[in-house]
Each structure stands twice: as structure tokens, then as C-alpha cells.
Design a protein around this nucleic acid. Structure first.
Length: 881
DNA sequence: CGAACCTTTGAGTTA
DNA sequence: CAAAGGTTCG
């Protein structure tokens, strides 16, 4: 399969049909028409089949098209058969899209592409084939976060660790992080493992993994990590896949984490000879020592750990000074030995759209591609086919503020179009009102609502829009909200099915043992646990045994016995009943449906609908087993996408989509960029937020509209905000400031922060350079002066920084809001300092007039104004009278 | 044991 | 302002 190709690396406009298989001859006797619509770079990316290729594809440059065409090309050239192509994406949505387009291109259903899917679904599939090699059974369950946390809570209890001080969620996060970095319990650097639970972190991780095996379960991270372990411990298995996959394609490469990288690396090597593999096999299993095979991934990885251990353990602040994400040392050891030939791997990505750093993604993977894959050909796609000139210019200018990037220059031949607009509103309600009106206006102008999207930073922002749209009667759909299978009623139903399917599934059993209420409370469950642990049997078996004794009160004993009998009966029925029917029976007989029917709360009806939907969706699967295997990976809500409606979603879930009209509300400091990201990731975090902004803007084809509100409710209380710095970073020539159409309007008389957007009305819509400069100056002054305004002595500042980095050192006590600082540079108004005001002080505020202080929270005052009512304001904006 | 009430704490993005 | 967790009482 490593036969040298005759294809030159550069453009092969005319196709040689000679070398094809049957498929090739059938479809590609003429010059392949699928190449005809491509620009030269795209074509290059499609026809460069041999050796590693990195396609740097900016937003809207035809990335998916290149990927699908490339697959079509491989097939029609007869270079590989469908099942010999591994093609991975991050989301099911992307995988579906590719399948669809491929089907259109090849003019047939693409059932023959079994290895086109997400990292997790492909990892899961491989794992099921070889489950027994990683101490699982092939029907293992994939746990959701909820199950994970419950399991960890139990482990914490067993270890006598106070789960207040060391919450299970935090541990879940840590473990997840380790898994993202490809670290098994033994590989976690000691220093890092010790951070949790007084040094017990590592031990907990290990026992968690053990428990998972006993429960025959895997979490999301395991789908990859266990896969890697499988490949490493069983080179024969790895070899099998290495020789199967003749071509590897990776979408969104900038979002890959270390585990995914390692997985790809293992698969992308040419299969080693059996003898060599056996030698390796003899060394690896059971050995914790670094495997001494020069240049192999194993060494490289152990180096990674060391570095990570150092950088995490020794650094006294979570603020990272560089651009590389924490725990991403540059290690040149990751080079492959020259003796490991590489397969034909093609990765497509855009460093400017890397927005999953917090999930363990390593921009580094893409920045370092040609290092990792020597001889890689890098192809840039810079011609944008999506957005108009102004939008593209705004987006490019904004992203140019990032330093850690490969650098691309997007260009378009499209007209300039409308300028990007920036609109300020008094508060988030007015913002929603304004956007609602603009959408109605677009609608009147004949725009299709399917071409309108609202992209928010955080999902809590969506509510106000939903409220507004309901009032207006404007149809909308929320994309990627809470996943269908994450809903309580769905998980309950699934838990019943899981217990039927695998009686050892303690987590599922525990979930439903008292749902609906059966009088089997904590005390009973605790008892079952004791029993189970003592005899090393699953909870269900323990229950069966306990029912025979008189340890339980008669009432509990009776209902537990009933439950067991139910399950026995259901399991028996499983043989003779269709799985969908069985599900209905279970929900019915367990009293679960009834529970919701009796429920009078508003969403009960919806939950019953969801249950019906669940049963309906089971139709697609052969049997219960097959359904359960796929449910957690594949089921996303894809409800009626037919009706014309506005789309409402987060910026993250908007990646990969495009709309004619894009509304981007909430561009305020603290929200966007998110203060938390800034606190946790420092400058790298800011750059990631900026990439998010870039992603948002580049979703728009013709109109991009940005908004900021002066007041926003956070945690239920109103606070004053200042416009996002990203607004200041937009190029003046491509942006227009408009007035809010939401009604009341706002004074803009200042006092609410300092940005050139302060005095929107006095500047009018002239977005002139002098105004900008003045505002910039103003802002700088305010940043310096503002600090004094709040802390007076300047000492407070350093004190807060100190205490917050002290927190960071411990790593986990949540940093209380310090000043908004990145690397010592004050970037926004600080909070958390001691106020110079006292309760009941009479104060004057430029906007609200006179009032009395009723509450003090750091430098935030709640003031009962005589005219404006109770408001929360920062103390520097009021003066004592 | 569980419903009802009270307190506290927390809203970032996800396969 | 919510949800989640804790406490109290029947």
C-alpha cells in the first residue's frame, strides 16, 4: 500500500483514468467533473493523495467540500475501498453532513463508509470489537457525566474524603483532563495527582477505572484512552487497523486533544512487521517503565508527562504567560523515527477557529503539524466564498490581534456589502427587543427566517430571546441546547433499560430504584451497598438476596421484591417482545409514566412527549442492545428542522454553520470575553475568546450585527457592564454604530465604564477617528484612575492578586473575583475590594440621581434610588453627598 | 421515609 | 433568580 505514487504534488488538472478500479472506470472515464468547480488550492488539497497533508482552511473556504471531494477522488481513483478510509470529525452533525454530501457527489447511498464518524463513535466501535482485551464486555455502557459524578461520590465516601472540600465534580473534571491528555492512572505525574483530596487524586483515578471495569462501563474519555491502551498493549490489533486504513482524513484538526493526537499517530503509522510487533508486545504489557523503542510515541509521551508535571506543580499561578495551553510543552521528541513510515493522512483545520482549548484541545497540534509529520505538505485555503467584504474585513482585523497563529489572509471577491453594525442598549431586555424588531423587519423584507441566527456566548443569554420571541410569535429553534438524552426523564427511562440489559449496571439501578418513589430511600440503598460490597456482587443481586432476609422493614422489603420481580419479568419478555414494545411496557408497569402523568408541573407534558419520542427513536435500531450502544453517542436532537425559524445557539455550536444574517448579542466585558476564561487561562484564554468572536463574525454571509447592553442581570442581580474590548478592536471603516431600535433608549451620558461606545448617541453614527481616539484615551485614563476610584490606596490591588494566585496554587479553591487583570495589566474594572461607603450613605449617581446605600458587596453597591428604584452599581460611579 | 420548607450557592463553552 | 442541598417535621 506504500507503492510510490505517480501523482506529482502539484496540480493535476487532467485526470488519468487508467489506474482506477472498477468504480473508477464506471464513474470517472471523463475528466472527473467533481474537480471542475474547485479553485487551484482546493484542487491541490484533493489530489495530493500521498504523504501527510495539512490543509489550513479559513472560515468559509470550502473545507467540507475539499474533504468530501478528496474521499470521492480516492474512491474513484481506486486507491482504496470505502472501508479502508478512516474519516473522523468531532460532531455527529459534521459526520452526517459529510455522508450526505458524499452521497450526493457519488450519486448513491454511502453505506459503504463504515469508518466515517466522530472520534468517539469510531473509538467506541473499535473498543467494542476488542472489549475483552481492555477488561470490558462488548456491551459496555457509556456513562454520562451524571453517572460519573455519582460513582465518584461513592469513591470519595469510601476514602473518607469530605466531598464538600473536594467535590466529585472537580475530580471528574480532573480525570477528564487527564484522559484528554492520554494519561492512564499510572501515567499521571505524581505532583499533579496529589493535588486533589490530600494526595489521593491518583489513587481515586485508579479506583475509578477499576470500578468502571466492574460495572462494565466506560466514560467518554475512555472511548479514546482505552483505545490507545488497546493499541499499545496489543500491537497485533493495532497492526490490523493500520493496514486496514489506507487513508486517514481528519476534520477540525485544531480541536484535537493529546489523546486524539496519539490515537491518530498510532493509526497513521504504517503497520510494523509482525516480528517487530511481537517484540514490542513482549515489552509493553505490565511494564510501567518507559518503553525503550527510540522515537516511538511511548517515550515521547512519558516526556510529555514530565513536563506537564513540572509546569503544573511548580507554577504558583494559573495564569499562563505563553500561548501554549497549560500542559502543552513543546516537545520535539514527538517526532517519529524515520523508520516509521507514515500513511496518507490529511488533516484539515483552522487555527483561528480553535475554540475548545478548555476541553483539552491543543492548538499546538496544528501549529506543529509539519514537525510531527515530516515531509508534510501544507496547503492554505484563503479564498472565502461566504461573507461580504466588510464582514470579512472586520473578522480578519479582529483576529489579527492574536499573536499565536499561523497567519492566513482571507480574501473575497465578493462586494463590500453592508457594514457590520454595533448597537448599544440599556439592558439585556432592550437588546432582545431590538433584535426582535430587526428580525421582524428582515422578515417583512422577505428574508427567510432560516437564514437568521442569534449566536450567544453563554446559554443563559438565550432565555431572554426565547421570552421575547414567544411574545412576538416569532418561530425559533434552539440548537444544541440540553441534549435529548441528557434530560432527566430520558436518562431514567434509559436506566430502566440498562438494568434490563445488564443487571450489573449498579449506577442505572441506583438511579431508578426509587424513581418513582417506592419507599426505598437512602437508608435502603446504603444497606444494599454494604451487602454488595461485602459479597462483591452487583447491587441488583444484593437486592435479591436482601429481600430474602428480614433486614428491611416489611414495607421496603415488599416494594423491593416487587421491583425485582418486575425486572425478572421484563428480562424474560425481552426474548419474545420487540424492544420498542418492551420499553413501553417497562415505562408503564414501573409506574414511571404514571409518575409524570400525575405531575402537575408545566413541563410534565413535554417530558411525556420526550418519552414517546424516545420509544419512537428506538425503531431505528435492531434491538435493545444496539440501541443502548449508540444512544449516548449518536442521539442528538434533530427535531423538526423543516419549519422556517430563527436559530438560537451558542457560538460554540455555531461552528461550521453559516447564515445570511447573524446577530451577536452580549459583547460586554466579563461575558464576552468571559471573565472566567480570562481568570483561568490568562492571555491564551483571551485569544481563544477572540477566536470565538472571529468564528461568530465569519458565520455571516451578508449581515453581521453586534450588540452590547449597559446593564445585565447576573446571578439574579443587575450589574453595570462595559462594552467588550473586541468591539474596540474592530476596524472603523467596516463598522457602523447604530442606535438601538428597542425603544426607551439610554442616556449614554457616561459613568458606566469607559469605552468609545460610551457616548454612542453623542457620536451619533459617525464612527470617526477622533472620537475613537478620544475614547481610547478616555479609556486608558479611566483604567488607571478607575482603580484608584475603587481602591484608593493601590495596595488593595496587589493584595488581591496575591491572594488569588495563592488560591490558584492550591489549584482548586475557586478564585474569588479579583480585579480583571491579565498579567498585571488592568483590563477592566475590578471588584472584590473594600468599599469606602457604608450602609445607608446617601449618594448621588449621574444617571439615577439620589439614593441610599442598602447593601455593600465589595465595591458593588446596591442603592435604593429615589426615582430609579433599587440598582446595583460600582461604587466609583456614585459620590457621597 | 419523604414532603415541605429553608439556605446556600452558583450561570461557560461539549463529544 | 434558580436549582440544589440541607433541615425539619409529620
Amino acid at each position: 500500500m506504500t507503492e510510490p505514487s505517480k501523482l506529482p504534488h502539484h496540480g493535476v488538472p487532467e485526470h488519468q483514468p487508467a489506474a482506477g478500479g472498477i468504480a473508477a472506470r464506471a464513474r470517472a472515464t471523463a475528466a472527473p467533473q467533481y474537480l471542475s468547480g474547485l479553485n487551484p488550492e482546493q484542487r491541490d488539497a484533493v489530489v495530493t493523495l500521498d504523504g501527510p497533508v495539512l490543509v489550513l482552511a479559513g472560515a468559509g473556504t470550502g473545507k467540507t467540500r475539499v474533504l468530501t471531494t478528496r474521499i470521492a477522488h480516492i474512491l474513484s481513483q481506486g486507491r482504496a475501498r470505502p472501508h479502508e478510509i478512516l474519516s473522523v470529525t468531532f460532531t455527529n452533525k459534521a459526520a452526517r453532513e459529510m455522508k450526505l454530501r458524499l452521497g450526493q457527489m457519488l450519486g448513491q447511498a454511502v453505506e459503504g463508509m463504515p469508518w466515517l464518524g466522530t472520534f468517539h463513535s469510531i473509538g467506541g466501535r473499535i473498543l467494542r470489537y476488542h472489549a475483552e482485551l481492555v477488561q470490558l464486555k462488548s456491551n459496555f455502557t457509556v456513562l454520562d457525566v451524571d453517572d460519573q459524578v455519582r460513582l465518584l461520590k461513592q469513591l470519595l465516601q469510601a476514602e473518607n474524603i469530605d466531598d464538600k472540600r473536594w467535590p466529585a465534580r472537580m475530580l471528574a473534571g480532573l480525570i477528564d483532563g487527564w484522559k484528554n491528555r492520554g494519561l492512564t492512572p499510572a501515567q499521571v505525574p505524581a505532583g499533579e495527582a496529589a493535588v486533589f483530596g490530600n494526595g489521593k487524586g491518583g489513587k481515586l483515578y485508579a479506583s475509578y477505572q477499576e470500578r468502571l471495569k466492574v460495572l462494565n462501563a466506560a466514560d467518554f474519555g475512555d472511548l479514546l484512552l482505552e483505545n490507545i491502551r488497546l493499541f499499545r498493549e496489543h500491537p497485533d490489533v493495532l497492526r490490523q487497523y493500520q493496514s486496514r486504513f489506507k487513508f486517514i482524513l481528519v476534520d477540525e484538526y485544531q480541536d484535537t486533544n493529546v489523546a486524539q493526537y496519539l490515537w491518530l499517530r498510532l493509526l497513521s503509522q504504517a503497520p510494523s512487521s509482525p516480528s517487530k510487533a511481537q517484540a514490542l508486545a513482549a515489552v509493553i504489557p505490565g511494564s510501567l517503565d518507559p518503553v525503550v523503542v527510540p522515537g516511538r510515541v511511548e517515550d515521547a509521551n512519558s516526556d510529555v508527562e514530565l513536563h506537564i508535571g513540572e509546569s503544573r506543580g511548580e507554577e504558583d499561578s494559573s495564569r499562563d504567560s505563553g500561548f501554549a495551553p497549560v500542559g502543552a510543552p513543546r516537545n520535539d521528541e514527538r517526532n517519529l523515527a524515520p523508520s516509521s513510515p507514515l500513511k496518507n493522512i490529511c488533516c484539515v483545520g483552522d487555527d483561528d477557529q480553535s475554540i475548545y482549548g478548555w476541553r483539552g484541545a491543543e492548538v499546538d497540534n496544528i501549529l506543529r503539524f509539519d514537525h510531527d509529520f515530516p515531509g508534510a505538505k501544507v496547503i492554505r485555503l484563503e479564498r472565502n466564498y461566504r461573507s461580504t467584504g466588510h464582514i470579512l474585513a472586520a473578522a480578519s482585523h479582529l483576529i489579527a490581534h492574536n499573536e499565536g497563529r499561523l497567519g492566513k489572509t482571507l480574501r473575497t471577491e465578493d462586494a463590500l456589502g453592508e457594514k457590520v453594525t454595533v448597537t448599544g442598549s440599556w439592558d439585556s431586555e432592550e437588546e432582545a427587543r431590538a433584535i426582535g424588531e430587526e428580525i421582524e423587519e428582515l422578515q417583512r423584507a422577505g428574508e427567510n427566517l432560516n437564514e437568521v441566527a442569534i449566536l450567544v456566548r453563554a446559554s443563559f443569554q438565550m432565555r431572554e430571546f426565547e421570552d421575547r420571541f414567544v411574545t412576538l410569535g416569532l418561530p425559533y429553534r434552539v440548537i444544541g441546547g440540553p441534549r435529548f438524552y441528557e434530560r432527566a426523564e430520558i436518562r431514567d427511562a434509559l436506566a430502566y433499560l440498562r438494568v434490563i440489559n445488564s443487571p450489573a449496571d449498579d449506577l442505572a439501578f441506583e438511579r431508578i430504584v426509587n424513581v418513582p418513589k417506592r419507599g426505598l430511600g437512602d437508608a435502603t440503598v446504603q444497606m444494599l451497598h454494604d451487602h454488595a460490597r461485602k459479597r462483591r456482587i452487583p447491587l441488583f443481586e444484593a437486592a435479591r438476596a436482601v429481600v430474602e432476609t428480614d433486614e428491611l422493614k416489611p414495607k421496603a422489603r415488599g416494594s423491593l421484591r416487587d421491583l425485582i420481580l418486575h425486572f425478572d419479568r421484563w428480562r424474560a419478555q425481552r426474548e419474545v417482545t420487540r424492544h420498542t414494545e418492551l420499553a413501553e411496557i417497562v415505562l408503564d408497569e414501573s409506574g414511571y409514566t404514571e409518575m409524570w402523568q400525575k405531575d402537575r408541573s408545566a413541563d410534565a407534558a413535554g417530558r411525556l412527549d420526550n418519552l414517546k419520542e424516545l420509544v419512537r427513536s428506538m425503531e431505528e435500531f435492531e434491538n435493545l442492545q444496539g440501541f443502548l450502544e449508540h444512544i449516548s453517542l449518536v442521539m442528538d436532537r434533530d427535531g423538526g428542522a423543516e419549519e422556517e425559524a430563527v436559530s438560537l445557539m451558542t457560538l460554540h455550536s455555531a461552528k461550521g454553520l453559516e447564515f445570511d444574517n447573524v446577530f451577536l448579542p452580549g459583547w460586554e466585558e466579563g461575558l464576552f470575553p468571559s471573565q472566567r476564561t480570562l481568570d483561568e487561562q490568562g492571555r491564551a484564554g483571551l485569544e481563544e475568546e477572540r477566536r470565538l468572536a472571529h468564528v461568530g463574525l465569519t458565520r455571516a454571509r451578508r449581515r453581521a450585527k453586534l450588540y452590547f447592553a449597559t446593564n445585565r442581570r447576573i446571578h439574579g442581580t443587575w450589574s453595570t457592564t462595559i462594552p467588550s474590548r473586541f468591539l474596540d478592536e474592530l476596524p472603523a471603516d467596516n463598522v457602523e454604530i447604530t442606535e438601538s431600535k428597542g425603544g426607551s433608549g439610554w442616556g449614554g451620558s457616561g459613568g458606566y465604564g469607559a469605552s468609545r461606545f460610551d457616548n454612542v448617541e453623542s457620536f451619533g453614527s459617525s464612527y470617526t477617528t477622533p472620537g475613537w481616539q478620544r475614547a481610547q484615551a478616555n479609556r486608558a485614563r479611566n483604567n488607571q484612575g478607575g482603580r484608584h476610584g475603587q481602591t484608593r490606596d493601590g495596595f488593595e490591588e496587589s493584595q488581591s492578586s496575591f491572594s488569588s494566585s495563592g488560591d490558584a496554587r492550591g489549584g482548586f479553591s475557586r478564585t474569588k473575583r479579583g480585579p480583571m487583570v491579565i498579567e498585571g495589566e488592568l483590563v477592566a474594572k475590578s471588584t472584590g475590594t473594600v468599599s469606602e461607603f457604608s450602609l445607608d450613605d446617601r449618594v448621588f449617581h449621574q444617571k439615577f440621581g439620589y439614593g441610599n446605600v442598602v447593601k455593600i458587596d465589595g465595591n458593588k453597591l446596591t442603592i435604593a434610588f429615589e426615582k430609579a428604584g433599587e440598582k446595583k452599581v460600582v461604587d466609583s460611579f456614585v459620590e457621597r453627598v
